[in-house]
Computed example of a mutant assay.
Amino acid sequence: MTTLFDHETVRDEFPVTRHMLYLDSAHQTPLATRVRVALDAFYAEGHEMAGPKPIWLRRVEETRTRVAAFLNAEPCEIAFTKNTSEGLNIAANAVPLRAGDNVLLIEGDHPNNAYAWLNLKRKGVEVRFVQLSSDSVIADAETFAPFIDERTKVISLSHVTFHAGQRHDIASIGRLCEEKGIYLVVDAMQSVGVLPVDVKALGVSVLAAGCHKGLLVPQGLGILYVKNGLDEMQPAYVAMSALANPPADYVARPDDLQLRKDAGRFEIGNFNLPDLHALGAAIDLIEEIGVSNVETHVLALGERLIAHLDELEIALVGPRSREARSHIHVLDLPVQPWFDYLTREGVRVSPERGGVRISFAMFNTPADVDRVIEIIRKGIVALRTVPAHAAG
Rank of each mutant, 00 (worst) to 15 (best):
S134L: 14
V125N: 00
L195Q: 15
Q190P: 08
K153W: 03
H163K: 13
I90D: 00
A94I: 09
G108E: 12
A114M: 07
V186T: 07
M189C: 11
R175A: 09
I170S: 04
D149V: 03
Q190K: 14
R151M: 04
V137H: 10
G87F: 00
K180L: 08
T81C: 04
A69R: 11
V154R: 01
F144Q: 04
F129T: 14
I90G: 00
T152D: 10
V192C: 05
A164S: 15
L157V: 10
V95H: 03
G174T: 01
P196Q: 11
V186Q: 05
S156H: 04
D109R: 08
K123T: 09
V154G: 03
N102I: 04
A68T: 06
E86N: 07
A73H: 02
V137R: 13
V125P: 00
P96F: 06
Y183I: 03
P196Y: 09
F80A: 05
A92V: 00
D187Q: 11
A69N: 09
D149F: 01
W117M: 09
S133D: 12
A171K: 08
Q190I: 10
A94F: 07
I173M: 04
A188V: 07
R175F: 04
G193I: 07
A68G: 05
H110D: 10
D149R: 05
R151H: 13
D140V: 06
L71Q: 06
F129N: 12
L120D: 03
R151Y: 10
K121G: 08
S134P: 11
V197S: 03
A141S: 13
G193E: 05
T84N: 05
E178T: 06
N83P: 02
N113V: 15
A91L: 02
E74T: 09
Q190T: 08
D101R: 01
F147C: 13
D187W: 01
L118W: 10
A141N: 09
A73C: 06
P146F: 09
P111Y: 14
L157F: 10
S191F: 04
A91P: 01
R122D: 09
V197I: 11
D101V: 06
K121R: 13
S191N: 11
F162Q: 15
F162G: 13
R98S: 14
R98G: 09
S158L: 13
D109V: 14
K180P: 09
E77S: 07
F162S: 15
R98L: 11
K180V: 11
V95Y: 05
A188I: 10
V130G: 07
V127T: 12
H168V: 13
